[in-house]
Structures are given as C-alpha cells and as structure tokens.
Computed example of a mutant assay.
Amino acid sequence: MNFFHPRHGRRSLAQMISDIQAYIHEEPTANYKIVIGTDSQTREKETIFVTAIIVQRIGKGAIFYYTKKRHKAMRELRYRIYRETEYSLEFVELLKEKGFFGFGVNIPMEIHLDVGQQGETRKLIQEVVGWVTAVGYTAKIKPESFAASAVADRFTK
C-alpha cells in the first residue's frame, strides 16, 4: 500500500509511520490528535476511495498522508458510505498491526465520516456512527469531519 504526502510524494507504510513518529518527537510535549477519514467519488466506470490520515499538532499545524483505492463504479450511496467507513476502520487496524500506537505517546484519535444532517447521507448517520463507536473510536460527522469531507475529498477528484 502506497501513501502520498503533498511535499514528499510517494511513501511506504513504514516510511509514513516513521515520518509521523519523527513529527511527534519534534515536539513531544505538544498536544496531538490523529484523524482518519475516507471519501469516495464515482465516475462513469470506477469509484475512487481516498483515505486520509492527519496528525494535528493542536494549535501548531498538522501533517497528512493519503492513499487511494479504485473499484468498479458503485452507484448506491449506502454501500459507498459503508465502504468508506470500513476503509477508515481497516486503516486503524493496519496501523495497530504495524505498531503505530506503541511508541509511547497516548494520542486521541477520531474517525471522520462523510455523512451529515443535510442531504441523503443523514439517513446513514446513526448506522455508521454506531459502528465506529461500537468498536471503540470517536466518530465525527459533517461539518466537523474535515478529514473525509475536505482532505480526502480533495484527492478523489
């Protein structure tokens, strides 16, 4: 799986984790938050899913990476939103498997969902927020879900 950083370009999972750990160790006393979100865009023949990971140094900036997955076009909104949620949760599990959270820093984490009170996705809020919170994570929806609705969205185009 390849990740992309706006300045450093393509990064492996190991490189991304190392970059993030170095970023945190630059200012170990700062407050941090990890945010993960996925968005999708369906075109004529395919749906592109982009998952973003953002590490915020609260009040002092952030770094982010993203990865893309391509699928045959998915037209059904419910299925796409479920797949977005699944990809975000799978990414957290992948990070756990690689020891990402074991480097001695207790950092809060949020899963950002591309659903909100406006539009068709409002019908799915309870389901996907319930899923994320049931597995132990904090879920955010629009307008607070910037990882999905702004960062990941930008790279689906």
Rank of each mutant, 00 (worst) to 15 (best):
G9Y: 05
A134Y: 09
M1H: 10
R154M: 11
R57A: 04
T51V: 11
S145D: 03
A73C: 02
K68H: 03
G119R: 12
S149T: 09
K157W: 09
Y137W: 13
Q56K: 15
Q56I: 05
W131R: 09
S145V: 00
V129W: 06
N2H: 04
K142F: 01
T138M: 11
I141K: 08
F146C: 03
Q56Y: 15
A73N: 13
E90C: 06
A152W: 01
P6Y: 07
R83Y: 13
P28S: 08
I63C: 09
G37A: 10
V50S: 05
E46Y: 10
M74A: 00
G130V: 04
A73H: 11
R122V: 12
G136W: 07
K96Y: 07
T67R: 12
S149L: 00
K157V: 13
R43A: 07
T42A: 06
T156N: 09
A134D: 13
A147G: 13
Y87N: 10
F103A: 11
K142P: 02
R78Y: 10
A148K: 06
I24S: 06
D153Y: 05
Q21F: 07
R70I: 14
H112E: 09
R75H: 15
K68E: 08
R122A: 10
Y66R: 05
Y82C: 03
E76Y: 07
E44S: 11
A139H: 09
T138N: 08
G104E: 12
F91S: 08
V128I: 11
G119L: 01
G9P: 10
V132W: 06
Y32E: 04
V132I: 05
Y23S: 01
Y32P: 04
F100Y: 13
T133E: 15
I81W: 00
A22N: 13
R10G: 00
A62H: 15
I17W: 04
G99P: 06
T38K: 03
Y65E: 02
E144M: 09
I36A: 08
A147E: 05
S40C: 11
S40N: 09
Y66A: 03
E26W: 05
F3D: 04
I34P: 00
I48G: 01
